[in-house]
Structure formats: C-alpha cells, structure tokens
Design a protein around this nucleic acid. Structure first.
Length: 249
DNA sequence: AGCACA
C-alpha cells in the first residue's frame, strides 16, 4: 500500500524557508541553461525572486531557488523532491539560511565580509570592499533582468515579438498528442517534460531540432491530454506563453 | 558530497 510519509520525524531537519536548496543536479548542464530550466520548472509553484547556481568546485550540482513565500517553497519540495531532471533525481530541501534578496527586503541584511577575515582590533570599521573574485572569468550569473516572476498572469501578454502561431481555422479534434507552440527557442525537452509529467497519462515529449519553438507531447489518451492542455494552456516560460492545441492526426 | 548570495 502506498502511504505518503509526512517528512517530519526524518533526518533532514531544516526549518521552512522561502528558499529551496537543490543538489544532485547534473553537473554537465551549463549554469545558464540550468537556471533557465529551473526557472521554467519551478515557476509553476509561485513567484521566483532569484535563482542562484555556481560552477565552482564546491558548488557544482547545486542551486538555490528563492520564492517570494515559504508556501511555494514547501509545495515545490513536496512535488519535485526526488524528481528526475537531466537524468538525475533532484534532491530538494529548504535552504539553511535566508537568502540575501530576502534579507534585503526584510531589512535584516548584514554584509558578510567580516566572516572572511579576522576582526581588526581597535575601533576602526572597514567598509571598503575591494572587489576581489571578479577576475575568475565566470561572469554569467546575474544575467537575468529580474524576469523570474513568470507564473501568474497567464493571459496578459500576447505573443512577444508579434510572432503569431499558426492557428488553424477550425480547432483540431481531440488527440492524445498535443502540439505546443510559441516556446522560447532555447526550451529543452527536459523542461517540457517536467511541466507535463505532472499530468496523468504523460508519455513523452518530442521536439524537432530543425524547428525550434514547437513540441509534441504525447499522452496515453485524449482525456488526459485534454486535462494537461487545460492545465498548462498559456503557461509562461521565460517571456513566452505556451500555446497548446491538439496535434493534427 | 558539497548551503550561497561573482
């Protein structure tokens, strides 16, 4: 029999936090793609303030996703812990400490430069932070101009760039295979899989390299594909809203 | 395995 175990008496005792800590991520995935995929996958649980991931030796395979509230983080953990992502199962917990973005909003943010060095004796405060690690060469972290908030306004934004998808005159008849359009060109099958997997009857995602921006998603039957279509219609990935129709037979 | 804020 299947019983859902409340995760309370177990080993990992980290108190709820609006930031989740993910590890066991596939280290071969480039940081930029990783962050985008995480955003695409986790924004379904609520507004994301920031996603942090680093490629340094000590922090490979890990990421922090900062939600704007702890409930979103809890849901994300409940739904996504142990979920396969780039062929490895994500391990998700609450982060141990509060994220800087959150602390800054709190007013509780305290710069942590003091931890690095010994405290100077005498009454002198040092407030000059020499930019130190700036020449590591890897500068691709904060590349997103605050666009992580992707989930809620499903029907506000039309098709960015004015690109109109091909809508057939008459809607295609129900099909267990869905046709997805208006995806960001960098969308990976993995991202779509993550989104559609949560619906019963999910079978597979197919994308065509030569035709970016579209995908086919197969379900076991058309009842199930219909539920998924309704659930994800207009879902925003990055800037784009997915347009889902039945595939032509 | 590894809990940061480039």
């Amino acid at each position: 029999m299947e019983m859902q175990e409340a995760n309370q008496g177990g080993g990992s005792e980290v108190s709820p936090n609006q930031t989740i800590y993910i590890n066991n991520l596939n280290e071969k995935v480039k940081i930029d793609e990783l962050k985008k995929s995480l955003n695409a996958v986790f924004s379904q649980f609520g507004k994301i303030l920031e996603i942090l991931a680093f490629k340094t030796l000590k922090h490979k395979g890990q990421a922090w996703v900062v939600f704007d509230n702890a409930d979103s983080a809890s849901t994300a953990i409940a739904k996504m812990n142990d979920f396969p992502f780039y062929d490895k199962n994500m391990r998700i917990q609450y982060a141990k400490t509060k994220s800087d973005v959150v602390a800054k909003a709190d007013g509780t943010f305290v710069p942590r430069e003091k931890r690095k060095r010994h405290e100077e004796k005498g009454g002198k405060k040092k407030k000059d932070h020499h930019h130190d690690s700036t020449q590591m060469g890897m500068a691709t972290n904060s590349a997103y101009p605050g666009v992580y908030g992707a989930a809620p306004p499903l029907s506000q934004v039309p098709y960015p760039g004015g690109v109109k998808p091909n809508l057939p005159e008459a809607p295609a008849p129900p099909n267990n295979i869905l046709f997805v359009q208006n995806l960001p060109h960098e969308t990976t099958p993995m991202v779509l899989q993550m989104l559609f997997y949560q619906y019963q009857g999910f079978k597979e995602v197919r994308m065509v390299e030569a035709k970016p921006g579209i995908a086919f998603v197969e379900f076991a039957d058309e009842m199930q594909s219909t539920v998924a279509m309704q659930g994800l219609q207009g879902f925003k990935i990055q800037q784009n809203q997915m347009l889902i129709t039945y595939a032509k037979k």
